[in-house]
Nucleic acid binder design. Structure first.
Length: 1026
RNA sequence: GGGGUUGUAGCUUAGACAGGCUAUAGCACUCGGCUGAUAACCGAGAGGUCACCGGUUCGAAUCCGGUCAACCCCA
């Protein structure tokens, strides 16, 4: 068999088959590398948000990667050279260490130290890439076009060195400082956490809520009512805090006097007498006696101080402050310049012999402390209080606020800059700019950078015993300072690096911290390129990066740290555009989670669902709206777009091969259908390009669905017969080139979203490159857009719909030719001409409104007319009913009223109804108010023609059942009643021609198939003619 | 406790910033039709308190205020 120009589609071909074929082709032809190396005249700076590969990629990861890929492919097609089209892997951090602890069965830090940091970190290093093969497999299945050979990896020495450079830069500019302060602290992991880590772990818990009384030192029988949800902090109390602007009362209860916020008194005491009111500032300076006599109160404590953070929403309006265990409390202690009482060790246990609860974990001591308070008559009231409390986001231990040495980045000092640079970012969705992200920047806190842990980027700070500090900004500097550069920059090797202090000559040792792993990923902008030591990264041109996207939870995670670090290092915003993706929910709309067991892993899903279908689904609706993972919906979207286009292609290929069509550019005739389709195609190109550029990929999908519907169900349906005409004239060439053009442009527009399918059609249409992804994105040609024609076609289509409706209402089949269709309204004759075949009528005419076959009849509205005309009403009604309705309407239009029998009749008193003439059925098109009439009378000639068509259709079905090619000739035997005999005799040429029959034989033979047409039996048998 | 987003038919969804004919379309459902694309297609029907309450307005799905629910973020 000779090879065909256009490959024909096997029946039953699925998207999975297409996927497999194209995937194989890409491998054979090394298409990915050709895409990666494609040039461009403009630069597009890409940055992959690095996942940690110690877990399996789930369906949400597939979505973020799809969107990244769409952006990359689109920009490749629009003449951009992609800078740094590589993946990246986040390697460090507490989650990894935790995994390792679980593996070894460790519960405390000392177990790790005893085991050996070297071996521990070695395990961490191995474990993080456990699932990297699966990640790469998913990327491959999905068609993610990045270069995994160039991946950046945050544990590499080069990467760490770039971070050192940044840290040193920050230190030199004074933005990196060490402080002893109260920080969120995990007593199990024995390290502090940063605010964005703390934010991950809030949970609702019930804690005791106690009201206790502090005895005044100056006033007889007088107490301060204080409230706390952490009774274990009471032994460390140093101050009571009031809001200086708030109102307080002195109340009397059972002979004792209490200071309490006025608005809270009634919820604490059932029965009380108010003695006096005063402002909070009047209480400031008053002294009290220590609540529990265990620890020695430091000098300057045991007094009431002012704090604006105190509210009267709950509690007593008087807050007990233990500077060791709260951020606000610590600030007070600091400004009062007092010693801090901290009887708790780093494991969160009381560690002071003087305390009765010594050795207990603090939160476990709460109950005993309450018993103590009760016994000593210090407790006013205790209850359970439900509130949210931070837990360690990895190990689930309740966090403490604990005073520690820690290194900070002074983010609060560059807050204004962060806010200012945010204005330059194009956010998708837009509300994030001043919502979630903007709000966070506005209250940015200093970033707690140091972690008292093992597996992470080491903090490059060395200190001597005289307190001199040196930050090392590169490997070479270690050498310059007289140290040895370890082969691996991680702990414990880096801890062994020692050198002499350049200031005093004493030995310097490294500060024992690693840094927050978020600093790693936030440094990707420059560290991925080993800036400034090597590579081609240039802050001038490569910051901000062009585009980033991740799931919504990264808004205050990765997006935030990128923004902060770029603001400090480069004095710019880190990214131009950011798209935030919402979660994929399960079929029922529930959040996916491991504990519910409804998580869907990307690999499993991609083994069932073709990648293009999944990619389309991700963009069916805005990506920042959550969607339910529903296979039915996935099927629907790809069926309506891809499968329909596949059908269109199949039609095209079949006919184009027969006609030996070859595409040589668009060759348009004057046929309005072709011009319409080309115009629509260009409108689609324009709309899509703009949608891609503004990151509204879902708009591309939406308009693609409309486009495909138009192409298949309007253009092709109406054009079909033109492809079957004999010969090869201008009109046929125009039709072919239009169809080819429309398909080609469509798949090119869709290529970033459905890369496999688009390439399949492209290659089968004989595209000139090796892959559609090496092509340019279609250019919009304004000359080819004809809005008037598009509108005219729309109107014509609405007429078709209306005729169909009228046929249905009057039980006239579509196959039955109508005698006459009359159309009144704004419609173009030439356009009407091309859709005429769809109307199936002998005569289609456009007429003037006035010539409509309609009778107007006038009547009175009795509810309006009767009250005015009174007794005359019936006579007038008689009269107006007998008048020509058109005359009545004309007079009213001309004069504003009509006079009948001397009575003035106002327009609102008259009802004019339109009745089509009995021969016609009438309706109006929905959108354009075009009047459509069909003549309901069917004469015998037309009736017989209708019957002939019925017979044709039955024979076609039988041909189909016999799987004949449409060129196969047949002989048809028919056994029919009289009307049909007439129809067959009169239309035998037509029937023969339509059914490829050599002969029609009116006879009764064996094996005939019985049909019923209009209630009459019709027996038919066909056989191949030879 | 504070902030953000969302709420339109059984499901998916347009319209909302710029208020205006009967609230858009698809899937599924019922009935009818079409057939040289056929695991495709067309028409009709049914299905809606546009989450709820109130306000502004001649007119509100749309603007404003409040409530409820879901999700996210923060403390």
């Amino acid at each position: 068999m000779q090879s065909l120009r256009f490959k024909q589609i096997e029946p039953g071909l699925t998207l999975k088959d297409i996927d497999a074929e194209i995937r194989g082709y890409w491998k054979d032809k090394d298409i990915l590398n050709k895409i990666l190396s494609k040039g461009g005249s403009r630069k597009f700076v890409f940055l992959e948000g690095p996942p940690t590969a110690n877990g399996r990629p789930h369906i949400g990861h597939a979505m973020t990667r799809t969107i990244k890929d769409i952006v990359l492919r689109f920009n490749t097609m629009t003449d951009h050279k992609i800078y740094r089209r590589v993946g990246g892997w986040d390697c460090h951090g507490l989650p990894v260490e935790l995994e390792a602890e679980k593996h070894f069965g460790f519960h405390t830090k000392s177990e790790i130290i005893n085991f050996g940091v070297e071996k521990f970190n070695e395990y961490c290093r191995e474990s993080i890439f456990r699932y990297i093969d699966e990640w790469k497999q998913v990327d491959d299945l999905l068609g993610f076009s990045i270069d995994h050979n160039g991946d950046y990896i945050t544990l590499r020495n080069d990467y760490i060195e770039s971070e050192w450079f940044a840290l040193k830069t920050m230190y030199k500019s004074g933005l990196l400082y060490k402080d002893y302060t109260v920080v969120p602290y995990c007593p199990r992991c024995e390290t502090s956490l940063s605010s964005h880590e703390v934010a991950q772990g809030y949970k609702d818990v019930k804690d005791p809520s106690v009201y206790v009384r502090f005895k005044s030192a100056d006033e007889e029988n007088t107490y301060f009512v204080a409230w706390t949800t952490t009774p274990w902090t009471l032994p460390s109390n140093e101050f009571l805090v009031v809001n200086p602007e708030m109102e307080y009362s002195l109340v009397e209860v059972q002979g004792l006097k209490y200071y309490v916020a006025t608005s809270r008194a009634s919820s604490i005491f059932k029965d009380y007498k108010e003695l006096r009111r005063l402002k909070g500032k009047d209480l400031v300076g008053k002294r009290y006696i220590q609540l529990m006599p265990f620890l020695d109160p430091p000098k300057g404590t045991m007094k009431v101080v002012a704090g604006s953070f105190v509210t009267s929403e709950d509690g007593s309006g008087i807050v007990h402050a233990a500077p060791a265990f709260g951020a606000d409390d610590y600030q007070i202690g600091k400004s009062e310049g007092v010693e801090i009482l901290n009887p708790v060790d780093k494991n969160g246990r009381f560690a002071d012999e003087r305390l009765p609860w010594n050795g207990k974990f603090v939160r476990d001591a709460n109950d005993e402390i309450i018993v103590y308070l009760k016994k000593n008559q210090l407790l006013i009231k205790s209850e359970k209080y439900e509130h949210s409390y931070p837990f360690c986001y990895r190990c689930d231990t309740p966090l403490l606020y604990y005073p520690l040495d820690a290194w900070f980045i002074a983010v609060s000092r560059i807050r204004d800059k962060l806010v200012e640079y945010n204005e330059r970012i194009n956010w998708k969705p837009e509300y994030l700019k001043h919502g979630r992200f903007g709000n966070f920047l506005g209250e940015a806190k200093d970033w707690n950078l140091s972690r008292d842990r093992f597996w992470g980027t080491p903090l490059p700070a060395w200190r001597c015993k005289n307190g001199h500090v040196v930050f090392v900004g590169s490997r070479k500097e270690i050498e310059d300072l007289g140290g040895n550069i370890p082969a691996d920059l991680h702990r414990p090797y880096i801890d062994g690096v020692k050198f002499r202090c350049p200031t005093c000559g004493e030995e310097m040792t490294r500060e024992p911290y690693v840094i927050d792993t978020w600093f790693d990923s936030g440094s990707a902008t420059y560290a991925a390129s080993h800036y400034p030591f090597e590579g081609n990264f240039d802050p001038e041109t490569d910051v901000p990066v062009s585009f980033i996207t991740e799931a919504i939870d990264q808004t205050r995670g990765w997006f935030y740290v990128l923004h902060v670090i770029a603001a400090i290092m480069f004095d710019k915003n880190a990214f131009e555009s950011a798209l935030s993706i919402n979660f994929i929910l399960d079929e029922q709309g529930r959040k996916m989670s491991k504990s519910k067991g409804n998580s869907v892993y990307a690999l499993d899903f991609l083994n069932e669902v073709p990648p293009d279908s999944l990619r389309l689904f991700f963009l069916y609706g805005a990506p920042w709206k959550s969607k339910n993972l529903d296979k039915k919906v996935i099927d629907e979207v790809s069926r309506k777009t891809l499968m329909t286009v596949l059908n269109v292609y199949s039609f095209f290929a079949y006919n184009a091969n027969i006609d030996n069509f070859e595409y040589a550019g668009l060759q348009l005739s004057n046929n309005p259908l072709d011009r319409y389709m080309v115009s629509k195609t260009n409108s689609f190109i324009k709309f899509s390009r703009e949608a891609y550029e503004s990151l509204d990929f879902h708009e591309v999908v939406r308009s693609a669905m409309e486009f495909v519907d138009d192409l298949s169900n309007f253009y092709l349906r109406l054009s079909r017969r033109r492809f079957w005409a004999d010969g090869f004239d201008e009109d046929k060439r125009s039709a072919y080139s239009t169809l080819y053009y429309a398909m080609m442009q469509f798949v090119a527009v869709m290529a970033p979203i459905t890369p496999f399918f688009s390439d399949f059609i492209y290659l089968n249409l004989g595209g000139s490159m090796d892959s559609i992804h090496l092509e340019s994105f279609p250019e919009f040609d304004p000359k080819l857009v004809d809005e008037k024609l598009e509108n005219g076609m729309d109107r014509a289509y609405s007429v078709i719909e209306t005729v169909r409706r009228l046929r249905q209402e009057n039980s006239i089949k579509g196959r039955q030719p109508l005698k006459e269709i009359l159309i009144a309204g704004d419609i173009d004759q030439a356009v009407l001409e091309v859709v005429k075949s769809e109307l199936n009528a002998k005569d289609v005419r456009i007429i003037e409104k006035e010539k409509e076959p309609i009778t107007l009849s006038a009547d009175l509205r009795m509810d309006r007319a009767a009250p005015v005309l009174r007794a005359k009403v019936n006579a007038v009604r008689e009269k107006i009913r007998s008048m020509d309705g058109r005359l009545v309407q004309d007079q009213i239009t001309a004069n504003g009223f009509i006079e009948i029998d001397g009575s003035r009749i106002e327009p609102d008193m008259v009802d004019i109804s339109r009745q089509p003439d009995p021969a016609y059925a009438y309706s109006q098109t929905e959108k354009y108010s075009i009047d459509v009439f069909i003549n309901k009378n069917i004469d015998r000639d037309d009736y017989l023609e209708g019957l002939a068509r019925e017979i044709v259709r039955r024979i076609q079905v039988m041909r189909k059942e016999m799987s004949l090619n449409y060129t196969d000739r047949i002989i048809a035997y028919l056994d029919v009643s009289d009307d049909f005999v007439d129809a067959i005799n009169r239309h035998s040429d037509y029937i023969k021609n339509e059914t490829q029959s050599d002969k029609l034989i009116l006879d009764k033979i064996d094996g005939m198939k019985l049909w019923e047409i209009n209630g009459e039996p019709v027996r038919i048998k066909i056989e191949l003619s030879r």
